[in-house]
Design a protein around this nucleic acid. Structure first.
Lengths: 344, 344
DNA sequence: TTGTACGCGTTATCAC
DNA sequence: GTGATAACGCGTACAA
């Protein structure tokens, strides 16, 4: 390995400043006193040589990367934009780096995670990107992890931050029932692997139960948090026999796009014939036609909170185990309420 | 530095497999023949010890990080979502890591970039996140860079990928003039630092000139690619005297949101009284009211292309200097055309 | 096909 | 306050 790097190293700085490498290092890291005189000399030399410490070398020496990771299972939805924005804000505040990767666990072990102890000091794991086994592995080596939009497996005690799904869903369905007198409410289920989906389904069932309405399996169909899947399945439901419904809870706002279209293409009016409500309050929802009544999830705040928690972990400070961010119902037109002042 | 790490290293593997570190390394990197027998022994030991190579150590040894960076000047717009999606797709294809950071150059030098040779093998620089001086520095050390949504300073010869701005703008303005007979077209200028803004302004001027229309400075106002700025300034323009206009090109789709609102709140109809056209074809534009006629910019493709170029650079393969992705006009309602089949 | 020995740029320990 | 130097974990000439 004779190819000496052309870049200027701490040794060069030390030589030119007529001090030892150790002193330069101390000056750099401010972790031990260095005389005023020497400091100035070093600073000057660093400028002259335009010396830049090589991150990877310090990383090896310190065994820290100054980087945190974010694992997403995909980037297809608009959901991750505010999430990322929140995370990035905190990360840059801490002068850290942010590594972003998509990953979906599979049964095959050779499909190994791009993010982990090899290249980060800690990671943020979104929903079901990692399975329990992977989380166990990380816990075993005491690697800092914060879960986003999922709770921790009970025995692992991994801090997590997610939003209030069940109660909010119960409330918005209750609104449909009590305020608008809807009694046949369809539900577009999200991906079963995602906890959000399951909790929203529970909230849906809660509300129906509480009002003595029967949960009809035929009215629970797959929406997959996806515009096109929702479109197809709502269309199918509409063309079926005896599956009358006067409202639909779309699971999330993406699916609402497809549901609205299917309903309107069938010649039905929203909200008069069929009311529609979603979940997330995505950027699009106020612009849908009619504007979508939905549950506002504070996604950017979720990102910020999760990132802060992770930094607490990194600094071995206490970190809240469970963070459940509150969600609000945003009333617009699609539920049947009159056009409100609360546009956008 | 006596604190021996508890983690298992390549040396442990070598010892247990009764071979040298070099052989283990060769097995790992598949860059030199290793006998079948030894291979199997090593593989078994690695499994037993659940050995994971430390990325940072190989990085130091190879002087490569297996990471590319993306520098954004902010994450406030929805624009970066498809961009990121495109980039991420290519990055994961190459089994690389993606570091994302926001950064806005300032005059103060202490505000140093979070991304560069210290932590990446190459970077993607969006628009004006870096100034020319910073680009010069990177070129000097021959650091691989690809520019996104801006051209290279002439003397630097940095590959870039951006979209066709000027001609597309000229076309969409021409559509307003020729098809819809508009003759007083306002323009919401984007941030001056962004090349996209300036080129779109030129396209606007081109179209007016070509039709013998006078460019009225009073009709060129700031939109800043921002919904709220656009709203305020269009409102102001509408309340002014003698600044009649029958159309507005909003610079981008974000600004269109604000412009539409300002116009409609003033009691004017879009497109009958004032036609509105934008640029980007963001996720929102088909959902605006009326659906927005705009220029479709292939943002995800921009991301993919830029990433591929960067990987070409990394592999010292030839890379196209200039990539100008084509843009298409998407006709919807807001220009005055009848509702077309081309919804969404 | 395998092993030896050193280099990568930095931090951290210890002695002074 | 400062210097000398051993780690850090891995890659890779070179020799065998």
């Amino acid at each position: 390995m004779t190819r000496r790097s052309s870049s200027v190293t701490i040794r060069d700085v030390a030589r030119h400043a007529a001090v030892s490498v150790a002193t330069v290092s101390r000056y750099l890291n401010q972790n031990a006193p260095v005389s005023q005189e020497v400091s100035e000399r070093i600073q000057q030399v660093m400028l002259d040589l335009s010396y830049k410490p090589l991150a990877v070398a310090r990383n090896l020496a310190t065994r820290r990367t100054q980087t945190i990771g974010l694992v997403l299972h995909n980037m297809h939805t608009d959901f991750f934009a505010p999430l990322l924005r929140g995370i990035e804000a905190v990360v840059s505040e801490y002068q850290y780096n942010l590594l972003v990767a998509t990953y979906k666990h599979t049964s095959r072990p050779e499909n190994l995670s791009p993010l982990g102890p090899q290249n980060t000091d800690g990671i943020l794991v979104y929903a079901d990107s990692f399975n329990e086994e992977q989380l166990i592995d990380l816990c075993r080596v005491k690697f800092p992890v914060v879960l986003i939009h999922r709770t921790s497996p009970a025995h692992l005690k991994i801090p997590f931050v997610t939003v209030e799904n069940r109660t909010a869903t119960r409330k918005i369905i209750t609104h449909l029932i009590e305020t608008h007198g809807r009694r046949s409410i369809a539900f577009l289920r999200g991906p079963f692997e995602q906890e959000d989906s399951r909790l929203r389904e529970q909230g849906y069932r809660d509300a129906l139960d509480a009002h003595g309405l029967i949960v009809k399996p035929a009215l629970i169909i797959d929406g997959e948090f996806d515009q096109f899947v929702a479109y197809r399945n709502v269309k199918k439901l509409l063309s079926g026999e005896g599956q009358r419904f006067d409202a639909v809870f779309t699971g999330d706002d993406e699916a609402a796009i497809g549901a609205l279209r299917a309903i309107q293409e069938a010649g039905l009016r929203v909200p008069e014939d069929v009311a529609v409500v979603g979940f997330d309050d995505s950027r699009l929802s106020p612009f849908l036609n009619p504007p979508l009544t939905t549950v506002c999830a504070p996604t950017e705040d979720v990102g910020r909170t999760a990132a802060r928690l992770l930094f607490n972990l990194l600094q071995e400070q206490p970190a809240e185990m469970a963070t459940l961010l509150p969600t609000d119902i945003i009333i617009r037109r699609s539920c049947g309420c009159p056009a409100s002042a609360a546009m956008n």
